[in-house]
Design a protein around this nucleic acid. Structure first.
Length: 256
DNA sequence: ATGGCCACCGAGGGTGGA
């Protein structure tokens, strides 16, 4: 089964790219973040015409997550992790016996902001949810835009005092790993590990990036993971003929 | 050169992203 996570930065702007991705890569489960639209603007019809169904947790302007799939998911949890209920950053479902949890973790802006406090609180709730889910579903993946760099080597420029790299957020991520989850990341020879590049300053072209989009698998599932890929081709303006504007994130895929 | 911020809301520039 191919499972993908992709922060698309607006599901409607990126719809042509998403449809091309479904055609080219044929994922079984595609988890999206940053939909940036309400439920009534979510492209259900277009996805159905492409042979996919979807569950989504939507919010106006910000956030929003969905799970697009070839087969129907079971035991859906809509936004199980929240501090403010209006903030839609989580969704989960079971697909072919694999529990899939999709997160859009709070960015946090800067370590001295209230948003950083919010990020840490949110991560604590996420940890609790994952802990409970692991007891119910031994075969489980947690995917999404974590907005945290796991290791120093995952950042072009590692700044321990700044957002994405700071100690407390990385500790929060480590606590989640400690629940019994493994980072599916596998290095590709001659390639950087990054999944996000700033739109500004030609960062993608210069490969100034960060690995913040993660797929974590439970111990029971890890041994079945056979492949890990980052689809950087989607970051090229020429990749999608009808939509040259790309997301700032690349899709991350595992096969299991 | 594969590129040089983007998307949202709303009507212009402020806000958030990471």
């Amino acid at each position: 089964m191919k499972i993908v996570t992709w922060n698309v930065n607006s599901v409607n702007v990126r719809l042509p790219n998403i449809l091309k991705y479904l055609t080219d890569y044929q994922p079984d489960v595609l988890c999206l973040q940053e939909l940036k639209c309400l439920e009534d603007k979510y492209p259900v019809k277009e996805l159905r015409e492409a042979g996919y169904q979807s569950i989504q947790s939507c919010q106006k302007t910000y956030n929003g997550v969905s799970i697009i799939s070839k087969t129907e998911g079971n035991d859906i949890d809509y936004n199980p992790v929240y501090i403010d209920k209006e903030e839609k950053r989580s969704i989960a479902g079971t697909y072919n016996g694999i529990r899939v949890i999709n997160f859009y973790v709070v960015n946090g802006q800067s370590v001295d902001s209230d948003k950083y406090i919010h990020k840490l609180k949110w991560l604590k709730k996420a940890e609790k949810y994952i802990k409970d889910q692991l007891e119910l579903y031994p075969k489980l993946v947690v995917v999404g835009d974590f907005n945290i760099v796991p290791n120093e080597s995952d950042a072009y420029e590692y700044s321990p005092d700044s957002i994405l790299c700071s100690l407390d957020e990385r500790k929060a991520l480590k606590r989640i790993y400690t629940l019994g989850l493994n980072d599916c990341f596998a290095p590709i020879s001659g390639e950087s590990p990054y999944t996000w590049w700033d739109y500004r300053g030609g960062a993608f072209h210069r490969d100034i990036g960060y690995r913040i989009d993660l797929i974590l698998s439970s111990n029971n599932l890890t041994k079945k993971v056979t492949n890990y890929q980052v689809h950087k081709d989607t970051r090229h303006k020429s990749w999608c003929e009808t939509q040259p504007k790309t997301s700032d994130h690349a899709p991350v895929m595992i096969e299991c």
